[in-house]
């Protein structure tokens, strides 16, 4: 069993350029990783003796909404710039330790590497993050919408600047 700080130090030693930051938040220490290297970091976390993270507990997309906000006349908000993040909560069943990883991608070009080849359960989680937030997971085998209809073209509903469409297939959407 290792503390998160120890895990961060191991990672930093292994990936000096890709492991970016360690935020020692008391409730949930977070390690920030380069989005285009997350699959290598994750593979290392799974395969290295002493780490052995065999479980991806959760993968969640988050809209940080830290860009430039402009209030539109119709009451909605438009956000430019800032980041969209993905959080990976890993757990090692064998050694009983946990770690939280984060990747931040630019809002205009949200691309992160898929970890589907490392933990199979990431498949649907990544599809959900794509469906709801719009993060594109590179090298994902089947990146389709999972909850919304396939022909949903009004954007990604859980983004903070999402606007409801007037109609979907002839049905009025707003109240």
């Amino acid at each position: 069993m290792k503390t998160r700080e120890e895990i961060f130090n191991i990672l930093k030693q292994e990936f000096p350029q890709d492991v970016l930051e360690f935020q020692n938040i008391p409730t949930e220490p977070i390690i920030t990783v380069n989005p285009l290297a997350i699959h290598r970091v994750c593979l290392f976390l799974r395969e290295t003796a002493g780490l052995e993270f065999d479980t991806l507990m959760c993968l969640s997309g988050v809209d940080d909404a830290n860009g430039e906000k402009t209030n539109d006349p119709d009451g909605s908000v438009t956000i430019k710039g800032g980041t969209l993040s993905v959080y990976y909560h890993l757990h090692s069943m064998k050694l009983d330790h946990k770690v939280t990883l984060r990747v931040s991608t630019p809002r205009e070009d949200p691309e992160a590497e898929s970890v589907e080849s490392i933990w199979k359960c990431a498949d649907w989680h990544e599809r959900e993050a794509y469906d709801m937030i719009g993060i594109i997971f590179l090298h994902h085998p089947d990146l389709r919408r999972i909850l919304m209809p396939y022909d949903w073209d009004a954007g990604y509903p859980l983004r903070k600047d999402y606007k409801n469409p007037e109609f979907y297939q002839g049905m009025k959407v707003p109240y």
């Binding site: 990936f15 350029q17 890709d18 970016l20 380069n34 285009l36 290297a37 290598r40």
Partner: peptide, 9 residues
């Protein structure tokens, strides 16, 4: 590879 990617980072 990570050295190449680093620029994007």
């Amino acid at each position: 590879i990570s050295a190449d990617d680093n620029q994007t980072v």
